[in-house]
Simulated scan of single mutants.
Amino acid sequence: MKIIINNSSQQPIYEQIIDQIKSLVVSGELKEHDMLPSVRSLSKELKISALTVKKAYDALEEEAFIITVHGKGSYVAGMNQELIMEEQRKEIEADLELAILKGRRCGMKDEELTELFNLILEG
């Protein structure tokens, strides 16, 4: 499992870990029952605090992406297709929001953005 931390990013490190693990699960690179690195080993590998990794794992467990078995480790949970689709929708929505903000910063009106979007869809 390859996780890359961007220290110059505005996004907190634990969120970067969460997003990357979610992406690996959604893409199928990490499959159900795959074991994740231990909190200690991942923190050592990324050269960050174990508490940061623990926070990411806790959040992933809360969102039902992973299951932690005390004394045995953390594993990828069985993902239902609706949850995977919802995650993908969230990512696309965030990307579209960024594109709209960028267009507005450049002075584009909503009608122009809509026209551009429809042009790209037809592409």
Rank of each mutant, 00 (worst) to 15 (best):
E112C: 04
G103T: 06
A77Q: 06
I67R: 13
E82W: 04
E91S: 14
R105D: 12
R105N: 10
E87Q: 02
A99R: 07
G73N: 01
D110G: 00
G103I: 03
E87M: 01
C106I: 05
E97C: 08
E97A: 14
E97F: 07
E91N: 09
L113V: 06
D95S: 11
A99C: 02
Q81F: 13
G71R: 02
N80S: 03
T68D: 04
G73Y: 03
I67T: 15
L96V: 08
L83F: 00
G73T: 05
A77D: 09
I84A: 11
D95N: 11
E87K: 00
G71H: 03
N80I: 10
I67S: 13
K102T: 09
G103D: 07
Y75R: 01
E97W: 05
T68P: 00
L113G: 01
S74E: 04
K72W: 06
L101T: 11
T68R: 09
E87Y: 06
G78N: 15
K72Q: 10
L101A: 14
G107L: 06
V76T: 04
I92Y: 01
L101K: 15
E91Q: 15
R105F: 02
E93G: 00
M108S: 13
I92F: 06
E91M: 13
A99K: 07
L83M: 03
K90Q: 05
L96H: 04
K102D: 09
G107C: 00
V69I: 11
C106G: 14
E111T: 12
D110L: 15
E112I: 08
M79K: 06
H70T: 10
A94F: 13
G71I: 00
I92M: 09
Y75D: 01
L113D: 03
I84R: 05
E86A: 02
Q88H: 05
Y75H: 06
N80R: 09
C106W: 08
